[in-house]
């Protein structure tokens, strides 16, 4: 499957779902009658139409785009790292409110440095610790921005 074909299918699918949802929105009885559904309908149609033309263009061998290559197989290590980072990044945000800033940030930074800067544990520990402490110093202490306070922050005088 070519790159443009994939893009066209994605555009039609997302545009289609969005358009159907837009059509289910209520109409107003007075004034701005089409109200909340007019603009979304236009956006949905634009996505579907552009996707359709892209697919039709792909039928012409002279204009055909290159084969879609997301590297799911060839670069599976990269994809593994992306997915792992995504999951850990989300987890980092979810635990921050209960555990405070310093501990989750150090742990997240240790994870990402270990993932990227493999085999240098001491260097990674130093980077993770310094990043958390310096950013806390800049944002919470110097710029006085509110950061979540966990049990470590409770022990600090600032």
């Amino acid at each position: 499957m070519t790159n443009n074909l994939v893009t066209g299918i994605v555009a039609i699918a997302i545009g289609g779902i969005y358009f159907i949802t837009a059509m289910l929105l209520p109409e107003m009885r007075m004034g701005d009658r089409l109200g909340p559904k007019l603009f979304p309908s236009i956006a949905g149609i634009l996505a579907m139409l552009s996707g359709l033309v892209l697919i039709i263009q792909e039928r012409n061998p002279a204009k055909r785009s290159k084969k879609a290559d997301f590297g799911f197989v060839k670069n599976k290590e990269v994809w593994f790292k992306i997915l792992l980072t995504t999951v850990v990044g989300i987890a980092y945000g979810l635990i921050m409110d209960s555990l405070g800033f310093l501990l989750p940030t150090t742990l997240f930074m240790l994870f990402i440095t270990t993932l990227i800067n493999k085999g240098r544990l001491v260097q990674n520990l130093i980077i993770a610790f310094l990043f958390a402490v310096i950013s806390y110093g800049i944002f919470a202490v110097a710029l006085k921005l509110s950061l979540p306070r966990g049990f470590i922050e409770q022990l600090l005088p600032f």
Binding site: N4, L46, A47
Partner: peptide, 12 residues
């Protein structure tokens, strides 16, 4: 067309 698709997604 891909630019138009990007705009449509942004508007959505």
């Amino acid at each position: 067309l891909k630019g138009l698709i990007a705009i449509a997604f942004g508007l959505m």
